[in-house]
Amino acid sequence: MNNDDLNTLQKIMIEGKREFLEKGFKDASLRNIVKGAGVTTGAFYGYYPDKKALFEALVLPVVNGLREIFLLAQEEFDRLPKADKKENVYDYTSDEVKKFVAYIYDHFDEFKLLISCAEGTAFSDFVHNLVEIEVEYTLKFVESTGNDAMASGRATPELLHIISSAFFSAVFEVVKHDMSKEAADTYIDSLKQFFTAGWQRILNP
């Protein structure tokens, strides 16, 4: 791809992001995107078959990046010795949440697209994938540490799914409300305290 192609592609992506952020995917106009980018519709189709493909190009890298960060953290914790898992679970989780939120703020516009503008795309429920990973590794933690939360009935797979969904939904409120990073850090600290207290009640009553 030569410099002219790269320049054209960059213009299309910049205008696409602006249009999607302003109107959401469903109401975004391809005509406005190409007009704002100063290119023809034919030129647009040389890069993307439709606006859905453009939206995907804008958000898929950060979706994959966040999933990779999250999954790596889960896998690393899962490999720890049982005693370390028991002792460090809350501190480890707190540190990983900080990394998670930092990544969101490094790519805030893209997460704004995902959280507030993705209706009508395959990404409208991207949080569900994170929830599934969280539930899978929470069950592994319970089993590997010999915790009786599941056996006693204090927890069920359904409850774990609901708690995880609630947590991720709460985290992404920082995006919905356009919080500054400073405000978000304070909010997330309070959120972690709230959910940690709940997990302690379930895992160590």
Rank of each mutant, 00 (worst) to 15 (best):
Val63Glu: 03
Asn204Met: 13
Glu132Phe: 10
Glu119Arg: 15
Thr8Gly: 00
Lys176Gly: 12
Asp109Val: 09
Asn3Trp: 00
Leu139Met: 15
Val34Glu: 00
Val174Ser: 04
His107Glu: 09
Ser29Tyr: 12
Thr138Val: 07
Asp125Pro: 00
Arg201Lys: 15
Lys82Asp: 03
Asp106Val: 04
Asp78Cys: 03
Cys117Ile: 06
Gly153Phe: 01
Val131Gly: 01
Thr93Ile: 11
Pro49Ile: 03
Leu72Gln: 13
Thr41Glu: 13
Ser29Leu: 12
Ile163Thr: 07
His107Ile: 12
Thr145Gly: 00
Phe167Tyr: 13
Cys117His: 09
Lys176Thr: 15
Met13Ser: 09
Glu143Val: 04
Ala43Ser: 15
Asn147Glu: 01
Ile133Asn: 05
Leu203Val: 06
Tyr137Glu: 08
Ser29Trp: 11
Asp106Leu: 08
Phe100Thr: 01
Ser152Ala: 10
Asp50Phe: 07
Thr8Met: 03
Thr41Leu: 14
Ala28Trp: 11
Gly36Asp: 03
Leu203Cys: 05
Glu110Cys: 06
His107Arg: 14
Leu72Ala: 14
Pro157Asn: 05
Ala83Tyr: 14
Asp189Phe: 05
Val127Leu: 10
Lys140Asp: 04
Asp5Gly: 09
Arg67Ser: 07
Lys82Arg: 13
Asp189Arg: 11
Asp84Tyr: 10
Ile12Trp: 09
Ser165Cys: 15
Gln200Tyr: 00
Asp4Ala: 15
Ala73Met: 00
Lys11Tyr: 10
Val127Asn: 03
Lys98Trp: 00
Gly153Ile: 01
Gly16Ser: 04
Glu143Lys: 10
Phe168Tyr: 11
Lys192Gln: 14
Phe100Trp: 03
Phe195Ala: 08
Asn2Leu: 01
Val62Glu: 13
Ala197Met: 13
Ala197Leu: 12
Lys140His: 10
Val127Arg: 11
Glu143Trp: 01
Ala43Cys: 09
Asp148Glu: 09
Lys112Val: 08
Leu159Trp: 06
Leu139Asn: 08
Glu134Asn: 14
Arg79Phe: 07
Leu58Thr: 09
Asp4Glu: 08
Asp148Thr: 13
Lys23Phe: 15
Ser116Val: 11
Glu134Met: 07
Val101Ser: 11
Glu22Cys: 06
Glu182Gln: 12
Gln10Trp: 01
Thr156Val: 02
Leu130Val: 06
Arg154Gly: 01
Asp106Glu: 14
Phe126Arg: 10
Ala53Ile: 04
Phe77Ser: 04
Phe44Ile: 05
Ala102Trp: 07
Leu191Asn: 07
Asp27Gly: 05
Lys181Ile: 08
Leu113Gly: 08
Lys112Gln: 13
Lys17Asp: 02
Lys52Phe: 04
Lys176Gln: 12
Ile33Glu: 10
Ser124Lys: 07
Glu143Arg: 09
Phe167Val: 02
Pro49Glu: 05
Val174Pro: 02
Thr8Gln: 05
Lys26Ala: 10
Tyr103Pro: 00
Trp199Gly: 06
Glu119Ile: 12
Val142Asn: 01
Ile104Glu: 03
His107Cys: 10
Asp95Ser: 10
Gln193Ile: 14
Glu68Arg: 11
Leu30Cys: 09
Ile104Trp: 06
Asp178Lys: 12
Lys192Phe: 14
Val89Gly: 04
Ser94Asn: 12
Ala151Lys: 10
Asn88Cys: 05
Thr156Pro: 01
Ser169Phe: 13
Asp109Gly: 05
Asn32Lys: 12
Ile115Met: 13
Ile133Gly: 04
Ala184His: 00
Arg79Asn: 11
Thr138Cys: 11
Ala184Trp: 01
